[in-house]
């Protein structure tokens, strides 16, 4: 995607010359200013689509965090905020060098441009390197996404039987034990049990039936439920809300949660890997763009009269940086 717009920036540079004086001016533009404005507006619009692409994931995050805060509090404890912090600094520095490179391009300082682009590129490598260390560490603990989530080491003392009993090796087993299946099992059993003891005498006299809490909360003691802000009377209402259950008093990052209490932790890692993964792909695309700019800068394509591609590439890199600035606190800090 990013390549496309980059190409468009380039298209400005390589459109066939039709007797125009400036070889960088495409045939369908009147002036360089017009061409530059087009590129700039196009890039900003493209960045808007990128923001919205991530927006969907942020939205998912917001909804699930408000419905299942305990999942996120527990999950964040498994992430290493120091590595995330270093990565944040790496990206911020690379953003600065990128801005500096753009300035150099405008002033016609080729050396500075090459240096700026080079450092920015190295920043990208550093970021991805640290990210891969983090991923490897997560994988080694079995912190995979969704159905593949299979933690092998727990800090909690009672972790062993948890791992054996609940998170069996295969995805199929995980499937069998996970939320919905349980909920139906329990629900049905409850219905039958309820039914068997009271045979109807007259239809009108039958009391409305109680609904059992969703299976996601099974295994928690009543006190613990209240602590987490769960009120049984709200269940049916809550079942209508997205997410299916209520937790009105969200736990804070101080709350210590054990693995038994927190169901669906795999969802935290699903969203974590999706968001950081998609961001990682964007970093790679950004690096490719910077590499391409570097080659063109080596060729001496840019100068005070024509630096549009550097400018647009810089905008893209800043966006990639900006998204990380949001991802870091959302996953590591709060």
């Amino acid at each position: 995607m990013a390549d496309a717009v980059q190409t468009s920036g380039a298209s400005a540079g390589h459109e066939g010359p039709h007797g125009h004086h400036d070889p960088n001016l495409a045939h369908h533009f009147d002036t360089m200013e017009q061409q530059f404005e087009c590129g700039k507006l196009g890039m900003w619009l493209f960045l808007a689509t990128e923001v919205l692409l991530f927006g969907g994931l942020f939205c998912w995050y917001a909804i699930w965090r408000s419905n299942h805060p305990e999942v996120f509090v527990y999950g964040a404890q498994k992430l290493d905020w120091k590595l995330g912090g270093i990565n944040t600094i790496v990206l911020l520095v690379s953003s600065f060098t990128m801005a500096w490179a753009v300035g150099c391009a405008q002033r016609g300082n080729r050396q500075g441009l090459l240096l700026g682009l080079g450092i920015t590129f190295l920043g990208g490598i550093g970021f991805m390197g640290i990210k891969s260390v983090e991923y490897t560490e997560k994988f080694s603990h079995g912190y995979y996404w969704g159905g593949s989530y299979n933690p092998t080491h727990h800090e909690e003392g009672h972790a062993a039987d948890h791992a054996d009993g609940e998170h069996a090796e295969t995805a199929d087993a995980a499937h069998a034990e996970a939320g919905a299946a349980d909920s139906h099992g329990d629900g049905h059993a409850a219905d039958s049990a309820h039914g068997e003891e009271s045979v109807a005498d007259s239809a009108g006299e039958l009391a409305p039936q109680e609904v059992r809490p969703p299976a996601a909360l099974a295994g928690l003691s009543a006190e613990r439920l209240t602590e987490l802000g769960y009120e049984p009377s709200k269940v049916l209402l809550a079942a209508e809300a997205p997410g299916g259950l209520a937790a009105s008093a969200p736990p804070t990052s101080e709350t210590k949660l054990s693995a038994e209490e927190v169901r669906n932790v795999h969802l935290f890692f699903s969203i974590y890997f999706c968001m950081t993964g998609l961001h990682g792909i964007h970093v790679l695309i950004g690096m490719a763009v910077i590499g391409w700019l570097f080659v063109r800068a080596l060729r001496g394509d840019f100068g005070p009269g024509y630096f549009e591609p550097v400018d647009l590439g810089g905008l893209y890199w800043h966006l990639v940086d900006l998204i990380w600035i949001y991802l870091f606190p959302l996953f590591y800090l709060i």
Partner: peptide, 9 residues
């Protein structure tokens, strides 16, 4: 099997 939209997860 990310589980975003699947109640089984």
């Amino acid at each position: 099997k990310m589980g975003f939209f699947n109640p089984a997860y």
